[in-house]
Simulated assay, not measured.
Amino acid sequence: MARGGARRAGRALSLESIVEISLRIADAEGLEELTIRRIAAELGVGAMTLYGYVRSKDEILDAMADHVLGGLRIPEADPADPAAVLRAAATGFLGMMRRHPSIVQLMTSRVTMSIHSMEGGLEGVLARFLEAGLTPELAVRCYSFLITYALGFAGYQHPRPWGHTDRPDNAELRRQRTHFYASLPAEKFPSIVAIADDLVALPADDQFDFAVECFITSVLAGRA
């Protein structure tokens, strides 16, 4: 790719800076708002200048997925404790998707097979599972469940701010949502009204943890 002749907009133009800006736009506003013209404007260059670094928007999308998946970091866990290893993988997957909400759209719309993405997003995780004593078949099953569940949960939670327990206004958002459920017509929604206080936790973190723990318990019981 070309490296010379690019204008500067507070930084050197490079594939890395293009990916950084693209992720910032997509994470905040969605992939729908990501265009070559918008990326170029954010970088302070003309749209044609970007084509010295990327051939198309698809190439940018692939580079974004490569960057995020390749940078996946799973928390440390005792390899002698399979439950801890599986729990760490679930935490790592969900954390990655929270830091970059656009990866949910990317992973459900395209396949990324670069060496970098497979090293971080696939090889590194599977190696941890095998080291923990899971059979190859079970390692694949666990990877499949954990990453697809994290994808689904992250996609569901993201537009529901009352489920984000790390937000400083979480208590107020939960109060408002509880009031919304409780004020629905009881004759039409008797179940919702009756359990409004519990229902507000539907997209909350502890629901993710609950499902992961149920899965781990089932897996290890079957393994035994």
Rank of each mutant, 00 (worst) to 15 (best):
residue 192 I to A: 11
residue 134 L to K: 02
residue 112 T to V: 06
residue 212 V to I: 15
residue 187 E to C: 08
residue 6 A to D: 09
residue 181 Y to F: 15
residue 22 S to E: 05
residue 213 E to V: 09
residue 103 I to T: 13
residue 152 G to P: 08
residue 117 S to T: 07
residue 143 Y to F: 15
residue 31 L to C: 11
residue 191 S to D: 11
residue 182 A to P: 10
residue 34 L to T: 09
residue 204 A to I: 10
residue 4 G to N: 10
residue 68 V to T: 13
residue 162 W to A: 00
residue 186 A to R: 15
residue 123 E to Q: 14
residue 22 S to K: 02
residue 215 F to P: 05
residue 171 A to T: 14
residue 204 A to F: 05
residue 154 A to W: 03
residue 104 V to Y: 02
residue 93 F to T: 04
residue 39 I to D: 01
residue 158 H to I: 03
residue 106 L to T: 02
residue 213 E to K: 08
residue 136 P to D: 08
residue 74 I to L: 05
residue 62 D to K: 11
residue 134 L to T: 01
residue 49 T to C: 07
residue 84 A to P: 08
residue 33 E to K: 15
residue 50 L to E: 01
residue 77 A to C: 11
residue 130 L to D: 07
residue 80 A to Q: 13
residue 54 V to H: 03
residue 41 A to V: 11
residue 20 E to W: 02
residue 119 E to N: 11
residue 95 G to C: 15
residue 91 T to L: 12
residue 55 R to K: 14
residue 76 E to D: 13
residue 159 P to I: 05
residue 54 V to G: 00
residue 192 I to N: 06
residue 177 R to S: 00
residue 131 E to D: 08
residue 136 P to N: 12
residue 21 I to C: 01
residue 63 A to Q: 03
residue 24 R to F: 00
residue 61 L to W: 05
residue 155 G to C: 06
residue 140 V to F: 02
residue 220 L to A: 01
residue 114 S to F: 04
residue 74 I to S: 01
residue 3 R to V: 04
residue 84 A to W: 10
residue 138 L to W: 01
residue 188 K to E: 12
residue 113 M to H: 12
residue 113 M to L: 14
residue 190 P to M: 14
residue 69 L to C: 10
residue 37 R to K: 14
residue 220 L to F: 09
residue 94 L to V: 09
residue 133 G to C: 10
residue 45 V to Q: 07
residue 106 L to V: 03
residue 118 M to E: 07
residue 210 F to Q: 15
residue 62 D to A: 12
residue 38 R to C: 11
residue 170 N to I: 13
residue 30 G to K: 08
residue 195 I to T: 14
residue 65 A to N: 02
residue 107 M to V: 06
residue 191 S to Q: 10
residue 203 P to I: 04
residue 150 A to F: 06
residue 172 E to W: 12
residue 144 S to G: 13
residue 151 L to W: 07
residue 53 Y to N: 01
residue 120 G to P: 03
residue 182 A to H: 07
residue 52 G to Q: 04
residue 35 T to E: 11
residue 171 A to Y: 06
